[in-house]
């Protein structure tokens, strides 16, 4: 189902078959009917090209600066739907301080992280979520540090909505709609294998939906346990990756609080 009203004339330059196309389609589907009151903010990296393929106002901003830019938009126009998009380099390397504080502020914008566990647009260097031992031309001996777990980080930082999906049209559309229904900061990580630099073949088959289980998304401890099931480091025959909404709660919203 194509949502033509949001299309631009720019021809996408993502690699053929890139999972970003799935994300783009899912987001556009979810935004149907919201075109008039929505702005998008993107960072720098492959994900950032999404700005060019969705005809919505906003800004394709600097690397790592998506959260404060979204915050500024929401502060100035609280009634606007604001969707921010980052890559894992954007969110977890360059801008990680902003990410933690975004969870603390709980401004009512939705933040999507296209996580392919690699700096793809700069041709394949490791990010903070690449597995230990990741090799590329800049790390011929392999990296020495384990990855961070962004879901745990967001839960610990007080995010009021924490979700993870796979880069699949239906999952992205569903989670976007859920996030838009949530009042407050929504953190959505999208596992998005990079066909060229981090293919993660068979990753999707290792995932399962929390919504299919008896997961209590209002329970922070339960959410933490679920978050620990996948450490972003080792993927083997036993790996099980939970997807869906880990945690959701109600918290005061920044742009409303500062006006009180």
């Amino acid at each position: 189902m194509k949502n033509k009203s949001l299309s631009t004339s720019t021809i996408p330059t993502w690699c053929p078959g890139c999972y970003n196309f799935q994300i783009l389609a899912g987001v556009k589907n979810a935004l149907k009917g919201k075109e008039k009151n929505t702005a998008i903010v993107t960072g720098i990296g492959c994900h950032g090209k999404l700005f060019d393929y969705i005809a919505l106002p906003g800004i394709n901003t600097l690397h790592g600066r998506v959260p404060p830019t979204c915050l500024g938009l929401k502060i100035a126009k609280p009634e606007l739907n604001v969707l921010g998009f980052s890559g894992d380099g954007d969110a977890y390397a360059e801008g990680i301080a902003h990410l933690i504080h975004a969870a603390r502020y709980n401004s009512n914008f939705k933040y999507f992280v296209h996580n392919n566990r690699v700096f793809a647009l700069t041709v394949g260097q490791p990010t903070p979520v690449s597995e230990k031992g990741f090799k590329d031309k800049t790390n011929p001996k392999g990296t020495k540090t384990p990855p961070i777990n962004p879901i745990k980080l967001m839960l610990a930082s007080g995010a009021s909505f924490v979700a993870r999906v796979f880069a699949d049209v239906k999952q992205v559309e569903w989670v976007t709609k859920e996030a838009l229904k949530h009042k407050g900061f929504a953190f959505i990580e999208i596992l998005q294998p990079c066909l060229i630099f981090h293919p993660d073949k068979g990753l999707k088959e290792k995932t399962y939906m929390l919504e299919d289980e008896e997961h209590d998304k209002t329970n922070l401890e339960e959410a933490m346990k679920k978050a620990e099931e996948f450490d972003y480091n080792s993927i083997n025959e036993n790996t099980k990756i939970p997807l869906g909404i880990f945690y959701q709660t109600k918290k005061p919203v920044f742009e409303e609080e500062i006006r009180k």
């Binding site: 830019t69 500024g72 100035a76 301080a97």
Partner: peptide, 11 residues
């Protein structure tokens, strides 16, 4: 950095 970028978001 957050200050200037939030400023840009509002401006």
């Amino acid at each position: 950095i957050a200050v200037v970028n939030a400023g840009i978001g509002s401006a």
